[in-house]
């Protein structure tokens, strides 16, 4: 799927760009975005280091184990393949907490840590496991309790009105993500042994 979408976006970009006379802009965008990607990654280094450092302290002091244990009833249903005492559960829980609290820049390092730990359990290092897909889908569905600061700034006095609507909408999208992952993972087309969808 990703292969077709990736290629499709570039193909549509070139074809539509040629028809609309935007072909120069398409070329420029390709080159610019390549630079943007590297700048984004480099910009992540500092924030990653900061949160991974704090995370290490939380891990060594046993804080993560305490939090992970408390939320085990939920995580065991979402990630049945991950052993109860595996460190991945702790990172997953912290990533979700950071997302719920609207701490986007803390959520990414914690999420990448979780992916690394989930990868340890993966027998086929190039193919995503059920747990990884579930984790990713929950992340992309944006579980959030606190409105993004940018939205609050933009909406001003009206921010409070969309507080409730955002919580309801984001809850719906998260439930949809969980249901979608649980139903799709059983399909042959997406099965782990099938080597994954192209």
């Amino acid at each position: 799927m990703l292969n077709y979408i990736w290629f499709g976006m570039m193909l549509i970009g070139v074809v539509v760009g040629a028809f609309t006379g935007n072909i120069d802009a398409v070329t420029e965008a390709a080159i610019d975005m390549a630079k943007v990607a590297v700048n984004l990654a480099i910009g992540l280094i500092g924030i990653m280091a900061l949160w991974l450092g704090v995370m290490k302290i939380a891990e060594e002091s046993g804080l993560i184990r305490i939090i992970a244990k408390g939320l085990r009833p939920i995580t065991i249903r979402l990630f049945p393949d991950v052993p109860e005492d595996h460190p991945a559960i702790g990172s997953i829980v912290l990533n979700m907490s950071a997302n719920i609290l609207g701490l986007g820049n803390a959520a990414t390092p914690l999420g990448l840590k979780a992916m690394e730990e989930l990868q340890e359990l993966n027998p086929n290092k190039e193919t995503a496991t059920n747990a990884m897909c579930m984790f990713l889908a929950i992340n992309t569905s944006s579980v959030q309790l606190i409105l993004p600061a940018t939205v609050v700034a933009l909406m001003g006095a009206h921010a409070s009105q969309i507080f409730i609507t955002t919580i309801i909408a984001t809850t719906m999208s998260t439930i949809a993500a969980v249901i979608a992952v649980k139903s799709l993972e059983k399909m042959k087309r997406f099965s782990f042994s099938h080597g994954g969808d192209v």
Binding site: M1, T108, L112, E116, T127, A128, A176, A177, E185, D197
Partner: peptide, 26 residues
């Protein structure tokens, strides 16, 4: 890209479909 890229996962299985479906529902 970031999450799967960080561990070198290339076959993403149903993750993209599920993520886009969740976006549509949102």
């Amino acid at each position: 890209a970031v999450y799967f890229g960080s561990v070198g996962i290339r076959k993403t299985r149903h993750a993209l479909v599920a993520g886009l479906f969740a976006d549509a529902v949102g």
